[in-house]
Every structure is written in C-alpha cells, then in structure tokens.
Design a protein around this nucleic acid. Sequence first.
DNA 1: CGTGCACTTATTGTATACAATTTGCCCGCG
DNA 2: CGCGGGCAAATTGTATACAATAAGTGCACG
Lengths: 225, 225
Amino acid sequence: MSTASDTAYEKIRQHLLEGRVRPGDRLTEEQLSAIAGVSRTPVREAVSRLERELLLMRTQSNRIVVPDWGEDEIDELFTLRQMLESHAAERAATRVSAQDIDELARINSELHEAVALDPPDVARFLDANRLFHEAVTEAAHSPRLGRILATLVEQPVVLHTAREYSIEDLRQSSRDHDELIAAFRARDPHWARAIMGSHLRRAFHVFADAMGEQRSSAEGACAAE
Amino acid sequence: MSTASDTAYEKIRQHLLEGRVRPGDRLTEEQLSAIAGVSRTPVREAVSRLERELLLMRTQSNRIVVPDWGEDEIDELFTLRQMLESHAAERAATRVSAQDIDELARINSELHEAVALDPPDVARFLDANRLFHEAVTEAAHSPRLGRILATLVEQPVVLHTAREYSIEDLRQSSRDHDELIAAFRARDPHWARAIMGSHLRRAFHVFADAMGEQRSSAEGACAAE
DNA sequence: CGTGCACTTATTGTATACAATTTGCCCGCG
DNA sequence: CGCGGGCAAATTGTATACAATAAGTGCACG
C-alpha cells in the first residue's frame, strides 16, 4: 500500500525482526519516524498496530519498549493459535465453496513446488504457507476470528529467519495441507479440526526446537554485533 | 483516564450503544470529534479501537460505517468467548494465588448481594460480573489472551440495556461463579474449564432470547424515534 | 554520603493546517 | 435520454507546532 502508515508499519516491523533491537530496549516515536521516513502521526498508528501484535509494548508511562517473550509465552501463543485455527478449519469445512477449495489446492501446489526444489525455497514456502492459512481463515467466514488470528499468526516470524527447516518438516506440512483439503472436500468439520490441530501442534514443536537453537547461539550473535 | 483519546472512545462508544445510529449509517471523523468534543487526532485513535472491537467498520475507501451484526455473528462471538474463556479458566486453575481466589470470592459476594435485592440491581450485577471475568482472565497470566478477550467481552453490552434479566438467570450465574471458585480451590483445571464452558453457553442462550425480544420490538422503537 | 526537591530535558498527547484521495454532481456529447 | 468526463465538495491522510506529562539531573540539606 502507498500510505505512510503502512510503509511505517513495514519498515519498523522489519527493523524489529532483523534483530537490530533487543528485548528491553526503549524506542521513541521520533527515532521510529526517522527509521520509517515519515512523520510521527503515521508512526503512532504503526506502533499501535505493532502493539496489538505484541511486537512492541508500552511502559507504565507510555514509552515504547521491545518486549521479551518467555518460553511460556511462545507456548501460549501456539496454544491459542491451535485452538482458534482448529475452530476456523471446523467452521470452514461446512462453508467453503468449490472455488475456495480449488484456490487452496492451487496455493498448496505452489507450496509443494517450493519444497521439491533442492535446496527448498524456504521463503517461498513460508509465503505460500501464510497464504494457505489465511485462505482457510477466510473460508471460515468469521470477521472476528479473522481479526484475532491475523494478529496471532504474524508474530512467530521473528524466528523464521533463524533456522534452516528440515526438508521432512516442510514435506509433512504440505501433506497436512493436502489432508485438510481432503477434509474440506468431504465437508467433514471434525476431520478438518483434527488435522489442523495436529498440524499446528507439530509446528509448535518444530518451532520450540528452532527457538532452542537460536537461544543457545544468541550470545555469540550479540557479541558479534 | 484523563486523556482525550479515552474520553473520545467513551463518548463515541456510548453514542453507538445508545442506539442513536443504525447499521449502515456513515459517520465522519469530524462528526465524531464534535460528539466527543476533541480534535480529530484522538478521535482517529478512538475509532481505531472501536474498529478493533468491531463496533465500527471502514468501507473499501476508508469511510466509517456502523456495521450490522447478524445472528450468525452473535453466535460466533459467544462461541469464541466460550472457547477462550474456558481456556483462561483452565490456565488460571493452576496459577491462581490464594489472594486471587479471595478477591474472586469478594467480587462474587458483591454479585450475590446485587441479586438478593428486590428488585435485583442489574447494573451492579453486570459490573461485578465483568470484574469477576476480568479477574479470572487476569489470573490466567496470558497477556495475549487478556488482550483478545478484552475486545470480545465488551461487545455484547449493546444488548444489556434492552432486557430485564430473570432472577433465576442471575442466581444461576452467581452459583456458577461459586463453583468456579471451588474448582480453583481444588486446583482442578478440567473442572474449571467445564464449569466456565457451561456458564458461558447458558449465557449465550439467555442472550439469544434477549436478542429475539429486542429484534421483534425494534420496528416500534424506530418508529417512535 | 545519602535523600528529597526544584528544575531542565526528553517524550508523548493534542490541535490545526494542509495534501491527497474519493465521492457526487453537472454538463456536454453521443 | 443515457453515459462518461471532469470539476467541486467532502473526507480522510500527513506534517508540524505546541501543550502536557514524565524522566533525568544536580543541588541543597540533613
């Protein structure tokens, strides 16, 4: 989008995800407006969004800080996502149109291709993966749910950059998607819920492992910085 | 709070809940700033909040409109709330402190008193009820969950004004709360989850009935207006 | 040498002016 | 008479200046 708010959001978000800041660091609106290249007004909106997504927080006196995520919070994040996205899949199973299903299949074939490459195109995989889950959420036809999930799903991206996923993880993900599509074709909400649940639960463990690696190599990275 | 954003939020929200607008109506930031008595800047923040809570929406070209809630959406709202608040209760069961439990008991005694009056003090009941649920959410120690629930729970207030609750409904609610406290004392997450689930599911039906009454008397009210 | 209080400075909150965009209307043209 | 282009009005988006508030700093005093 061409609005200043959106570019501010993107730039600040990128700045945060690149690891140029550390938990506990304090930022000012002015600094951020320098980073984003726009005035404070759109920056404030962007910060508001990032705050919703918990990529930023406010101190008691409304100063901007970078929050630190404990292990417990990561766990909780995935639990919530599993709960809500399973629900989304269940709802979607009885509401998807044939076109929606075709679209899902198309996205997932994209995903299969990204995995089939050697080496696999992880960025492309993640992109298609995000699209897939968004499409499922969309098919659930629940604006509220969509809104909530949008803020939950974006967050873990912080860690995506830090790890080479194993090919087997990627393959299994795409197979899960295939099965979800099958559940949709069968219009079986229970099946859809179950496969989405296990899909995300496994993702959690992959993630937790990735986190562990990142954590253990964190000190070195900071020293190098 | 004394900030202009908050007063704007309160005033606009009140304006919406008083039924002075109808679904589909379009509002401008200027109108709203007149209503709130502050400039457009804080109004924009307030609108942003109300948008998050789906009390307002934006058209494709970012104009502000009053959304209409279908029956399906009310259902979904309660389903989400049940899902998330059951989860909160489950989490809280293993995390509440003795002080938290005492606080919950205190709030609920307040609630019992409000019900015991003749006629029952519904406003006081609703207030204590809100406090109780907030305290449970707080005890779950999950910032994310708290954030999400805060936006979900506020919404149904629209309808609260429309109906005299039956005494039996109120009594049953306070008994549910007693049982939840018992579950907390026993540190039993499954029990806590179950009682919270049934509590909210019943609330949904009470609500749906109230909605039906409101709907059926809506035309008359509009004509009178 | 620590502690609390005034004062300076930094940071956020609000208002206003202006730019960009969208909408609705009116007029000319087919 | 319908339809499209373009102008005018309305509305939202952005920048900037200023006000309010909180943090930091240093000095006097115990």
